[in-house]
Design a protein around this nucleic acid. Sequence first.
DNA 1: TATACGTGGTT
DNA 2: TAACCAAGTAT
Length: 314
Amino acid sequence: MPDPYRVWLSEVMLQQTTVAAVGPRFTAWVERWPDIASLAAAPDEAIMAAWAGLGYYARARNLVKAARAVVAEHGGQFPATEAGLRALPGLGAYTAAAVAAIAFGERAVVVDANVERVVARLFAIATPLPAARPAIRAATDRITPQARAGDFAQAMMDLGSAICTVKKPQCLLCPLAVDCRARVEGIADTLPAKAPRKERPSRHGTAFWIEQEGQVWLVRRPAKGMLGGMRALPTGPWEDERPGLAGAPGQGPWVILNDTVVHGFTHFGLELALAKSEGEPDDSAAGEWWPVADLETAGLPTVFARAADRLKRV
DNA sequence: TATACGTGGTT
DNA sequence: TAACCAAGTAT
């Protein structure tokens, strides 16, 4: 049976994240923290920095919590059941079922976006998401075998990602084509139906770069909310209008660059103005000096890594 | 049930 | 090129 630690880690990394992006990060991670005990013992900031660039940083915050819970409350062994796993932070319906099935051989019903799509088409479930979820789950339950549910789940996910794709599904190559009601009805590429997305608002902020003797002033963002717990450049508020120097972490004087960083988050776009100074940081702004030459190791989220790239060469 | 939460690849 | 979307979870 596969190592539960690795199955758990890979499933969490793969949440909303492509296999290509996860591959090298997974390898580096298990080399550094080969088991649950080593991860549980690692300092928060090392773990957050190691997650930098992967996005959805609550995953990293929950990863630490779960690792420590397994060590403190389960003697260092993962709970071997779907229900037990589901109680750990960061393991939702999908991940708990996937780990139970793949790492422990439990018959669990594994439903991710791939399975959702395959099953919606197989049974021609035309109800739009998310209302269709109960029906899709029930249908998946009906076709999940008693034995090797983990292999079944992975096969369904592979089918969804390689053949039964969102656009232009390759029905001619599909092993389920004969049984697929959506294919018969000629509506495969329209399922599952989804409500249209809301428009993404755009916000503005300013990133501040204070440099002294080859070092830059970095802060740690609040534990909750956007980029929570991550090391970052200081910023003022993110608002509808350009905030200028509002919320600056020092008296300056500030030089505002004739350049911005435009970054797209899930639910809003951000245009970051860039301001630079060689003054003193405010006492109120808790932070640390970081060598500019070692900025890659600071573990900055992508938006700040991009801002820093612009700022350090000016 | 709806919203907050990142990033990079594909079309 | 702007959308769209990916092996989702928490609240």
